[in-house]
Amino acid sequence: MDIQSIHPLVIFFAAITTNNILLTNFLGMCSFLAVSKDLKSSLGLGVAVIFVSTFTAPLNWLVYHKLLVPYGLEYLQYIAFIIVIAAFVQIIEMIIERVSTLLYLTLGIFLPLITVNCAIFGCVLFLVIRQYTFMQSIAYGLGAGTGWALAIAALAGIRTRMEKKSKVIAELEGPGIALVITGIMAMAFIGFSGIVKIN
């Protein structure tokens, strides 16, 4: 099937469920494992990721298709994407700092983490490889961010509960058990396959 003919909404839902960027593509694992210890900061980081991925996806689409392709500079894509993401995060950080102190305190500390978050960068690489259109890339950015936020919030919820109630084998504590939980979550998400499909 021609990928460009898929409705953006389908891509949005697929990015959350069947093609969840964390559970099927393993992107953004580092901050996922490090931050998921409590629900509040997980949500903060999740919102920041949704925000950045929604904007950097179409922005990088423009850079790639309107700037790099016409001049035959596709091989510079990695550097271009990284610069766009880093610059965007930096600018957003400055704007938020000026506009709202409250927002800065809740979201601001997570923004620097995002420049090196592979979920954002991976999302951009996927939209180039899969040759999405502009609208599709907005939907994909939003969906990928939402899927990531959903996964980290779910894991944080499970981890806080687990720490109170159950005893984990000493060697598996921390990242080990988090990986096992994520694995089970990934299995649960396989249940979505068949609802929407975009590969």
Partner: peptide, 22 residues
């Protein structure tokens, strides 16, 4: 070969190595 086993395999590997180190 699909996603979940990657998580389980790495968790098991970490488990074995940490048990060994302990």
């Amino acid at each position: 070969v699909i996603a979940p086993s990657g998580f389980f395999a790495l968790a098991t590997y970490i488990w074995i190595v940490r048990a060994f180190k302990a």
